[in-house]
Nucleic acid binder design. Structure first.
Length: 969
DNA sequence: GAGCACTGC
C-alpha cells in the first residue's frame, strides 16, 4: 500500500490563522470565480424575476389567479406560480432544504453587481463625470473593435506629465478617508509582502507565486506592481495584464480591485476588464487589465510581441486549461525577443515547482492562505461513524471488476485499478486495528459497486443535520443522474430530512433559522460558483471528465476518481466562513492512489482548432510547437488533427494554411463551424447559419428542468416544425425569441418559459452572431455588417425555404447513416428531435458532435437529402459498378444513378467548388443583383435542385450501398 | 432515454 494519505486524515486543514493580523492578506477575494454575491436575506425581492421568468412572487401569488386571466392563461398561472407558493408553504414546515446547482441554471444576478464602489467627493465626482461624458461622446463615434485595436497598439512610451499626475493622485488618495477605509477593511496587505514581491519581480523576468484560493494573490499582486511604478514616478511605463480562466472571474476581480482603489471600473481608470464581447477598458498607461486567457491569445495575432504590456500575470495556471498551457509556451518563446517583459505565474501550491522548472527554475514565492481549518474524513471514518451497512443489492454473479466498470476503461486507469485490487488485502488488514469488522466488510461491499452509494450520502446528511452545528452542506456529485437520484431520496426521506427543491437562486441565500440548506452540485461548485455559507462538504469522490480517444477518434465523457487537487479544492469550500468538515467518500487506499492533478486539457481534447491557431500565430511547425508545451499531447493526437485539417482543406500538404485555412483560423470557432459560416455567407443564408454556428460553438439554448423532460421534448418537437433537424429547431427557437423580444420583455420571458429556453444563452448567441458577421464583413464575404441584410439572406427564407437552405451549410458536418438502436453503432441523443423519429425522408443524417458516454451518441443531427450530400459532402466520383453507373461521395456514400444525371451533378459540383474556392481566395460577396452572372446561375441551380426535390420517390437516384469499411468515424 | 466544466479582438 502506498503511504501518506493516512496522515492527511483528520489533519487540521488550511494551516490558516485567520485574524492573525500581520500575515493576513485578504481572505475574501477568491481569485477563482469570486462568484456571485449572495443576497443577505433569504427571501427574494418582491416581484423580482429570475432568468426564464419564474419570479413574480409575493404580491400576485396569493392563492388565486389574477382576475384578468382567461382559459389557458389561468392554467399557466397555476403551473408557474403554484409551485413557488407550494414550496414557500412547505419551507415553513420542514427543517431541511435542498437546492441544487448545475450549469444551465442562470445565476440570479449579473456579476456587475459585485463589489462596492466607494463614493468620491462631490466636486471631483462632477468633474470626472464631465470628463467621462466627453470621452463617451468621443468614443461613441469609434466602433468598439477599432477602439480595442487602438488600445492594443498604443506604445508604452514614458509620459512624464502622466507620471506626475498618477503619483499625485496616488498620494491624494492616501489621504482620502474612503480609500483608507477600503485599505483597512479590504486589502490589509502587509507591507513586507508587497516589498518582497515587488523586488522579486523587478529582479527576475519570471516569478511563480504560489498560494491557495483565498490568499488574495489575484487582487493584490497586480496592484503591488502598479503602485510601485506609480510611487516611483514611472506609472506611465506600467501596464499590467492579468489573465483569468473564466469570464466571470475577470469581471468580478476587476470590480473588486477597482473598489479597493476607491474607483469604478474601466473608462480611463486604473483597473478594467476585457472578455469576449464585453469590456470596460482602463486608461492606456498606468493600469491593470483583467482579461480571459483567450483574449490574450487573440491579441497575439495583431501584436505577436505583446509590445504594449509591461507585466503579464497568468492566474490559475495550475488548472492547466488548454489556453493557459498554450499561452505559457508562447510566452516562454516570447521572452527571447521581449527582454523587458515581466511575467508572473500564479498557481496553487501543489505543483508550483513544475512551472518554475518550465521557466528555467525561476524564483518562487509562497503566499500563505488563510481559510478556516477544515477537518477531513475518509470513507472508513464515515462508515464507522454512521455504522453504515450497504443494502444488499440483488447479488449478481461477481464479474471481474474491469468488466463491470465502464467497458471503455482507459489503459492508465486499468493499471491503477490493478494496483488497487492488489493492495486491498494489505490495506484491509491495516484497518483492523482502528475499525470494526463490520466497517471493513461494508467497505468491501461498497467497493463492489462502481456507483456512488446515495444511501450513504443520505445517512451522512441525516447525521450532520441531527448532530452537527448550523451551516450549509455542499455535496459534490459527478453528474445529473446522481444529483436527481439523491434529490429523490431526500425528497422521500422521513423527517427531519424532508425536503423541497426550490428555485436555484436560493443556492446563494442564507436560510432562515432552523432550516438547513443542502446544495447538491457538480464540479461547477469547485471554481465557478461560490456558496459562501458552506460548513460541511461531502465529496462524492468522482468527477466527470472528457477525454479524446485517439485510437477510435472519438471524444468520451465518463466519471473518474477525483484528483488530489479536486479533493483539496472541494475541502476548501467548507472553510470560508468558519471551521468546517469535509467527508471524502473514498477509502484511504483509493486516496493514496489518486493523481495529483487531472490530466491537462491539452492531452484530453481534439487539437484541430489549436493547430490552426499555431499556424496563424506563426509559432513554427505544428508538432514542434506542441512538443514545447508543459505536457505535450500525444503524437497520434497531433497527427490526427493535422490529417483532419488537410481533409478540410484548411492545411496544404506542407502543413501551411490554405486560403480557406487562413479564414477559418481567424474566426473564433472550431474549423468545421467556421467553414459552415463562410459557406452560409456565400450562399446567402447568413442569419440562420450564424444562429446554428453560434449555438454549436457556445451552447444550445434549450434547458431541461428536472422532472420536465417529456414536456420539454414536446415543445422542442413543436419548434422543429417537422424539419427532422436539431439545427433548424434552434433557428426556429431563435427567430421565435427575436419576435417575442420585439413584442416586449414580458413576451420574451413567456416565450422562453414556454419553450424551455434560456434567455441568457439566446442573448449570448445573438451577440456572437454579431461578432461573426463583423468578421465576415471585415474579410469581405458580405456587403454589410448587418447579418439581417437582405443580400446575405436571399436563401434564408422562412420555414419551408429555410429548411433546405440552412441544410446546405450544415452539410459541412459529418454524415452518418441513420441507424436504429438495434444496430448498436451510434444512437441519436435523447435530447435530439430525431431521437424518437421513425419516419425519415432520407437515409442520411449529418451531425456535429459525437461523444461516447453510456453509449455513442450523436448530440445534434439533421436529416439530409442525397443531393445535399453530393454537393456539399466531399469529393464525388462516378464509377461503373456491376454494370451500373454509380456516384459516390468521398468514395463511401454510393448512389446508383443514370449516367446523364451523375455527370450533370458532378459538373455542377465542380463549378460550385471552383466558385467557392475563388470566393475564398479573393473574398467578395456573390452579386445577387446580377441574376445573369455565372455565380448566381450555379448557386441557383443547386439550390433549385435541392429545394424542388420534394420527396425521395422523385429523386433520380437510388441509394446503392454503403461501404462500412470506409466509414471514417 | 439523457445533460462535467471552461473559452474566443
Amino acid at each position: 500500500m502506498s503511504s501518506g494519505y493516512g496522515n492527511r486524515r483528520g489533519r487540521r486543514g488550511g494551516g490558516g490563522r485567520f485574524g492573525d493580523g500581520e500575515d493576513v492578506w485578504d481572505r475574501c477575494a477568491g481569485p477563482s470565480g469570486g462568484g456571485y454575491q449572495s443576497n443577505p436575506g433569504w427571501e427574494s425581492r418582491e416581484g423580482q424575476a429570475r432568468g426564464g421568468g419564474r419570479g413574480a412572487r409575493g404580491g400576485g401569488a396569493r392563492g388565486k389567479h389574477p382576475p384578468h386571466l382567461k382559459g389557458r392563461e389561468i392554467g399557466l398561472w397555476y403551473a408557474k406560480w403554484g409551485g413557488i407558493k407550494r414550496s414557500e408553504a412547505e419551507r415553513k414546515s420542514v427543517r431541511t432544504y435542498v437546492t441544487s446547482y448545475f450549469d444551465g441554471d442562470d445565476p440570479p444576478e449579473g456579476p456587475q453587481k459585485m463589489g462596492k464602489v466607494a463614493e468620491m467627493e462631490p466636486d471631483k465626482k462632477q468633474k470626472q463625470e464631465q470628463e467621462e461624458e466627453k470621452e463617451v461622446k468621443m468614443k461613441a463615434k469609434v466602433e468598439p473593435r477599432e477602439r480595442d485595436l487602438e488600445y492594443l497598439f498604443q506604445d508604452l512610451v514614458r509620459k512624464p506629465a502622466l507620471d506626475v499626475e498618477l503619483k499625485s493622485d496616488f498620494q491624494a488618495k492616501a489621504e482620502n478617508p474612503k480609500y483608507l477605509e477600503m485599505l483597512v477593511s479590504e486589502r490589509m496587505s502587509p507591507v513586507h509582502y508587497a516589498q518582497r514581491l515587488v523586488s522579486l519581480v523587478q529582479a527576475s523576468r519570471v516569478v511563480v507565486i504560489s498560494g491557495e484560493t483565498g490568499c488574495g494573490k489575484t487582487t493584490q499582486v497586480t496592484q503591488f506592481i502598479l503602485d510601485d511604478y506609480i510611487q516611483r514616478g514611472a506609472g506611465s511605463l506600467c501596464r499590467v495584464v492579468c489573465t483569468q480562466p473564466r469570464r466571470i472571474s475577470a469581471i468580478s476581480v476587476a470590480e473588486r480591485v477597482a473598489a479597493e482603489r476607491a474607483e469604478s471600473v474601466g473608462e480611463g481608470r486604473s483597473c478594467g476588464y476585457q472578455i469576449r464581447l464585453q469590456s470596460r477598458l482602463p486608461r492606456k498607461q498606468g493600469s491593470v487589465l483583467y482579461c480571459t486567457t483567450g483574449i490574450i491569445l487573440q491579441w497575439l495575432r495583431s501584436d505577436p510581441c505583446l509590445s504594449s504590456i509591461s507585466h503579464l500575470v497568468l492566474d490559475e495556471v495550475h488548472e492547466r486549461s488548454l489556453q493557459s498551457d498554450v499561452l505559457l509556451a508562447v510566452v516562454r518563446d516570447l521572452l527571447h525577443s521581449r527582454e523587458d517583459l515581466k511575467v508572473v505565474l500564479m498557481s496553487a501550491t501543489l505543483n508550483a515547482e513544475k512551472f518554475s522548472k518550465y521557466f528555467d527554475n525561476c524564483p518562487m514565492i509562497h503566499i500563505p492562505g488563510y481559510t478556516y481549518p477544515v477537518e477531513e474524513y475518509l470513507l472508513e471514518d464515515v462508515v464507522e461513524m454512521l455504522r453504515f451497512r450497504p443494502q444488499h443489492q440483488d447479488r449478481r454473479p461477481r464479474f471481474p471488476r474491469s468488466f463491470l466498470q465502464n467497458q471503455w476503461t482507459r489503459p492508465e486507469k486499468e493499471a491503477q485499478e490493478a494496483e488497487y485490487r492488489q493492495s486491498w488485502p494489505c490495506f484491509a488488514r491495516s484497518l483492523r486495528d482502528r475499525f470494526s469488522d463490520d466497517t471493513i466488510e461494508a467497505l468491501e461491499r461498497l467497493d463492489e459497486d462502481d456507483k456512488i452509494n446515495l444511501d450513504l450520502i443520505v445517512a451522512l446528511i441525516r447525521h450532520i443535520v441531527m448532530n452537527e452545528d448550523d451551516g450549509a452542506i455542499l455535496v459534490f456529485l459527478p453528474g445529473w443522474d446522481n444529483i436527481s437520484g439523491l434529490n429523490d431520496l431526500l425528497m422521500h426521506a422521513p423527517d427531519p430530512c424532508r425536503v423541497t427543491m426550490p428555485l436555484s437562486d436560493q443556492v446563494f441565500k442564507r436560510p432562515p433559522a432552523g432550516v438547513r440548506k443542502i446544495v447538491i452540485a457538480t464540479n461547477i461548485a469547485e471554481t465557478s460558483i461560490t456558496v459562501d455559507d458552506v460548513v460541511y462538504v461531502i465529496d462524492g469522490g468522482k468527477i466527470k471528465e472528457t477525454h479524446f480517444d485517439t485510437q477510435n477518434n472519438i471524444s468520451t465523457m465518463a466519471a473518474e476518481w477525483v484528483s488530489l487537487a479536486n479533493a483539496k479544492q472541494r475541502k476548501g469550500r467548507a472553510g470560508r466562513v468558519s471551521p468546517g468538515k469535509c467527508y471524502h467518500l473514498y477509502n484511504g487506499l483509493r486516496a493514496s492512489l489518486l493523481d495529483n492533478y487531472q490530466l491537462p486539457e491539452i492531452q484530453r481534447t481534439p487539437l484541430e482548432e489549436l493547430c490552426l491557431q499555431i499556424k496563424i500565430l506563426k509559432l513554427g511547425p505544428i508538432a514542434s510547437f506542441l512538443r514545447k508545451t508543459l505536457d505535450p499531447p500525444s503524437e497520434k493526437a497531433i497527427e490526427l488533427a493535422i490529417t483532419h485539417l488537410k481533409d478540410l482543406n484548411a492545411l496544404d500538404r506542407s502543413e501551411e494554411l490554405t486560403p480557406l485555412g487562413f479564414h477559418l483560423a481567424r474566426l473564433p470557432v472550431e474549423p468545421h463551424i467556421g467553414k459552415m459560416i463562410l459557406f452560409g455567407a456565400l450562399l446567402a443564408c447568413l442569419d440562420p447559419v450564424l444562429t446554428i454556428a453560434a449555438s454549436l460553438s457556445f451552447k444550445d439554448p434549450f434547458c431541461i428542468p428536472l422532472g420536465k423532460e417529456k414536456l420539454a421534448d414536446h415543445r422542442r418537437k413543436i419548434l422543429s416544425k417537422n424539419s427532422k433537424s436539431d439545427h433548424l429547431t434552434i433557428v426556429n427557437a431563435f427567430w421565435g425569441w427575436e419576435d417575442a423580444k420585439r413584442r416586449g420583455y414580458k413576451c420574451e420571458r413567456e416565450f422562453c418559459w414556454d419553450n424551455f429556453l434560456s434567455a441568457n444563452t439566446l442573448q449570448m448567441l445573438h451577440n456572437m452572431k454579431g461578432q461573426f458577421a463583423e468578421h465576415l464583413w471585415a474579410a469581405g464575404f458580405v456587403r454589410s455588417k448587418d447579418l439581417k441584410d437582405s443580400s446575405a439572406n436571399i436563401n434564408s427564407g422562412d420555414s419551408q425555404g429555410l429548411s433546405t437552405t440552412a441544410e446546405i451549410c450544415v452539410c459541412h458536418h459529418r454524415p452518418v447513416k441513420v441507424y436504429t438502436k438495434a444496430d448498436g453503432k451510434v444512437c441519436i441523443h435523447p435530447k435530439s428531435v430525431n431521437a424518437e423519429e421513425t419516419q425519415f425522408h432520407y437515409t442520411w443524417l449529418i451531425y456535429h458532435l459525437k461523444m461516447r458516454t453510456s453509449s455513442i451518441f450523436l448530440y445534434d443531427c439533421t436529416e439530409v437529402s442525397p443531393f445535399s450530400l453530393l454537393f456539399f459532402g466531399g469529393d464525388i466520383s462516378i464509377q461503373k459498378d456491376q454494370e451500373q453507373e454509380t456516384i459516390a461521395v468521398d468514395e463511401w456514400i454510393v448512389f446508383q444513378s443514370p449516367a446523364r444525371i451523375a455527370h450533370l451533378v458532378k459538373n455542377l459540383k465542380r463549378e460550385l467548388d471552383v466558385l467557392l474556392e475563388e470566393k475564398i481566395r479573393q473574398p467578395r460577396p456573390v452579386d445577387w443583383d446580377d441574376r445573369g452572372s455565372s455565380d448566381c446561375a450555379v448557386i441557383s441551380a443547386i439550390i433549385d435542385l435541392i429545394t424542388t426535390q420534394e420527396s425521395p420517390s422523385e429523386a433520380p437516384w437510388q441509394e446503392r450501398s454503403w461501404k462500412a469499411g470506409q466509414h471514417w468515424d
